[in-house]
Design a protein around this nucleic acid. Structure first.
Lengths: 246, 246
DNA sequence: TCCTTAATTTCGCAG
DNA sequence: CTGCGAAGTTAAGGA
């Protein structure tokens, strides 16, 4: 985290006066610490959309990269937030501690106004590691590239991310008879949207090759919904069941 | 929040022994409090995918609804998480404080193992309010339903969420000449995916009406990308520029 | 429960 | 910077 190799630190203020809370947060912003504030607050957001929250008890997290998160005790998602790249600022105003996170492009403003602060914490530490995830669409692609007959006997991959006027195709190749094949990969069960996407690529490629030879479209995923299955059939597209790993 | 109308509370342990941290968390889970733990930890996830994080300083939030969030000092998104509906559990093991959040359907497990705990906090309060957001696709729909000529002079909405074999159409109606119109709404600038979606609905509806009369497809959004614009033209679809509010 | 789509989606990558 | 599509997407609404 921000402090590099320094040993991790945490400081806490319990039930601080609003001015003391303000000073601690000003200091934390200066030191590029991660901070949390818990207390009774209202929240106003205005930007890509706009929203308002009346007084309630919530948990605010401020990150040194400019992100801000307002959490209640329910839900995985914050009830309000601001992405990284914002400027945090603090002030006391009309008996409230007002914390604002603002950015431009797009112009957005999040204001959390605390009438009561129960806790202010600052955290500093280091996180040198990277997250490694297994089971992604990329794993599925690697699986097919290493063993093309998982798609079908005689399939030969020719390119990945092949560009078409409709976007990049996951895998482009040829079947045993030399016919062009567009492969769309999904790491999990797919619905109609994935079929539309594949159809768009097949259409674009046929037009691109301006050939009479039609292009095969193959959707690779663990499974499909009924409606997606019917759409596949309607558009003459194919499906191969395959998981990203195993 | 959980404690209903009780006045909000926050308690803090600084640099607790792992056993004291464990006892505080067990108590917090029992009391259905929201809790946070900051310290040096490893994180393991296994479920829809799987991931691992080596030792680093991170902030864990446990919610009484079963959600768990692991944050570093960067990014709006947690580096690891678990959705609501999990069971949290705590134990000390091999000199570490191990906090597990587990759910079934799908079978998923998140384990955060702290070798050092700098702070444990518990929060209780109430959040009686609901978030009201303005500027959504629903707002755009209302705008057109209340003033159909924003789409075009003579347009008459006949149904919203009209079902087709390809899914539900945002707005279905007729133009001044009585021709069927499918309207797809987007609250912001759209790319090729929205065009595919609209085309899918138009195709499905033409087939549904099994009529020779072709169906018009109109995409309503603040703007379109170049590629989306070309796709619209290629498929004989139309575009109307409109914002969700104003 | 699954299906379908919106979202202040966020995130990452490429042009 | 915008465009484009993946994501352990999450969340909501309906069947």
């Amino acid at each position: 985290m921000t402090s590099g190799t320094r040993s991790p630190q945490a400081t806490t203020l319990e039930r601080p006066a609003l001015e003391d809370a303000r000073d601690a947060i000003v200091d934390g912003i200066e030191r590029e610490a991660m901070m949390t504030v818990f207390g009774r607050c209202t929240v106003d957001y205005d930007g890509r959309a706009s929203s308002q929250l009346e007084a309630g008890d919530r948990h605010l997290m401020l990150k040194p990269d400019g992100a801000a998160l307002v959490h209640t005790d329910e839900g995985q998602q914050p009830v309000n937030w601001q992405p990284p790249g914002c400027e945090h600022s603090v002030r006391c105003e009309d008996g409230a501690l007002v914390i604002e996170s603002v950015r431009s492009s797009p112009e957005e403003r999040l204001a959390v106004s605390f009438e009561l602060v129960l806790q202010v914490s600052t955290f500093a530490g280091s996180d040198p590691t990277e997250l490694a995830v297994v089971g992604t669409e990329e794993d599925l692609r690697q699986r097919i590239l290493e063993e093309p007959r998982l798609l079908e006997e005689g399939f030969t991959p020719l390119a990945t991310e092949r560009d078409t006027p409709a976007g990049a195709v996951d895998i482009y190749g040829e079947d045993a008879t030399g016919r062009s094949v567009v492969v769309e990969l999904k790491r999990r069960r797919v619905g109609p949207d994935a079929v539309s996407q594949l159809r768009r690529y097949v259409d674009a490629l046929e037009r691109d090759l301006h050939a009479d030879a039609s292009v095969r479209g193959v959707l690779v995923a663990p499974s499909v919904t009924d409606r997606a299955d019917r759409l596949l059939a309607r558009h003459g597209l194919e499906f191969v069941a395959l998981e990203p790993t195993e």
